[in-house]
Write a protein that binds this DNA or RNA. Structure first.
Lengths: 195, 195
DNA sequence: TCGAGTCGATTGACGAGTCAATCGGGCGCC
DNA sequence: GGCGCCCGATTGACTCGTCAATCGACTCGA
C-alpha cells in the first residue's frame, strides 16, 4: 500500500497545486505537472480525464475539508458572534497552512471561467454563513434589519478579499497581520465603523 | 470625423465587451469580436496589439471613469458615512447601467491571470476607500480601532461579491434588490450586526 | 499619386490529449 | 520454492485541431 495507486494520484494533485500556484492554470502545461510530480506525462491522464479535471479535483477536495470544518463550528454551537469568529479564523488561517493552495483557489477558482464557480459547493459555504447570521438574529444578538443572505455574501467577499490581498502581496501577511485581520473582520461585522 | 478612426476603435471595443460578456475572454475568438463589430478581422490588430490588449483597454477605460467618479465624491466632501454611501451607490448602480461591462470586469479582470490585477489601478480604488475611512476616523465618526486599509479591502471585497452575486445570478437584481444592497452594505459597515 | 484605413486568407506555433509499447509484481500451477 | 502468465500501472513520442497573429492586397479620399 505504501506504493499503491492512490499515492501517485496524490503526488500528481500536490504537484499540480504547486505548479498552478507558480504558473497559473492557463500557463501551466500538463507536462509541468508530470515533471513536478516526477511521473510520466500520460499518467496524469490515467488518473484525471483532463487538465481541468485536475484543477477541479484540487478545488473539490479542499473545499470539502473547509465545509466540514465550518459545519464543525456550527455543530459545536455557541453564540453567533463566536461562531462567526471561528469561521473567519478557519478561513484566514488557511493562508498560513498552505499558501500555494489558497493562491490557486483564490486566483483560479473563485471567479474563474474554468470551473465556472462550482455553484453548488460555493453555495453551501454561503448557506453556512447565512445560517449563522440567521441564528444570531433568532437569538436576538443580531439585528433583523439586514438580509442574512446579503450579509453572508458580503462576509464571504470580505474574507476572500483579505486572502486575495495576501496572495497579491498587497497586504502584510505575518502572524500579527493574520491575527489583526481576524480581529478586524469580526469587529467590523459585529459593531460596524461608527463609534 | 463621423467615420473617423476613433469610431471604429470604439466599435471594436464595445463589441468586445459584448463578446467577452457572452463567451468569456478565453472562449472568445478574435473573429467573434470583428464579426460582432462588423469589421474585418485584421482591423482589430490595426487598433490593438493583441487580444489581451483589447481586454486591457476595456478595463483601463472603464476603471478610469469609475476612479473619476469616486474622486468626485471625495471632492464634494461631506460626512464620511455619506461619502461611503455615495461610492457604494456608484459601484452597485453600474450593474444596472451596463451589465455586460460589469460581467466582464468581474469575471475576467478582478482576479484574472490575464491582466494580473492591474495592480496600480486597483490600488488606487483601495486608496480612495482608505482615505474616506481615514477621514471618518479623523472627524471622529469612525472608530480608530480598525485599520483603515483593512476596512477598505473588506469593503471592496463586499462590493465585488455583491456584483458577482448578480453576475452569477445567485442574487435577485431588480431595482429593489439594488437599493437594498446599497442600504445593507452601508448599514453593515456603519453599525454592524449587533443590535 | 500617395498613404491611411481596411480587408481576410494563410500560417505557424502550440499544447492537450492519444495510444501502443513496456514494466513489474502478484498469483496460481507445477 | 520457483516459473511464467496476466493485467493494471506507467511511459513518452506523436497527432491533430485550434486560434492568435501576420501580411500583402485593395479602396478611396485628398
Amino acid at each position: 500500500m505504501a506504493g499503491g495507486p492512490e499515492d501517485k494520484r496524490r503526488l500528481i494533485l500536490d504537484a499540480a497545486v504547486r505548479v498552478f500556484a507558480r504558473e497559473g492554470y492557463h500557463d501551466a502545461r500538463v507536462g509541468d505537472i508530470s515533471k513536478e510530480a516526477g511521473v510520466a506525462y500520460g499518467l496524469v491522464y490515467h488518473y484525471f480525464t483532463s487538465k481541468e479535471a485536475v484543477l477541479e479535483a484540487v478545488f473539490r477536495e479542499t473545499w470539502g475539508l473547509m465545509l466540514t470544518a465550518i459545519r464543525g463550528v456550527e455543530e459545536r454551537g455557541g453564540p453567533a458572534p463566536d461562531q462567526l469568529r471561528r469561521v473567519c479564523a478557519i478561513v484566514l488561517r488557511s493562508w498560513r497552512d498552505d499558501p500555494d493552495l489558497v493562491r490557486v483557489l483564490v486566483r483560479e477558482v473563485a471567479r474563474s471561467p474554468q470551473i465556472q464557480r462550482e455553484i453548488d459547493e460555493i453555495e453551501q459555504a454561503f448557506a453556512a454563513l447565512e445560517r449563522i447570521v440567521e441564528r444570531g438574529q433568532e437569538e436576538g444578538t443580531f439585528t433583523r434589519d439586514l438580509s442574512a443572505r446579503m450579509v453572508a455574501l458580503m462576509l464571504y467577499g470580505a474574507l476572500e478579499e483579505i486572502l486575495t490581498g495576501w496572495v497579491m502581496s498587497q497586504l502584510p501577511d505575518d502572524d500579527d497581520a493574520v491575527a489583526e485581520a481576524e480581529r478586524t473582520i469580526v469587529a467590523l461585522f459585529a459593531q460596524g465603523l461608527c463609534r
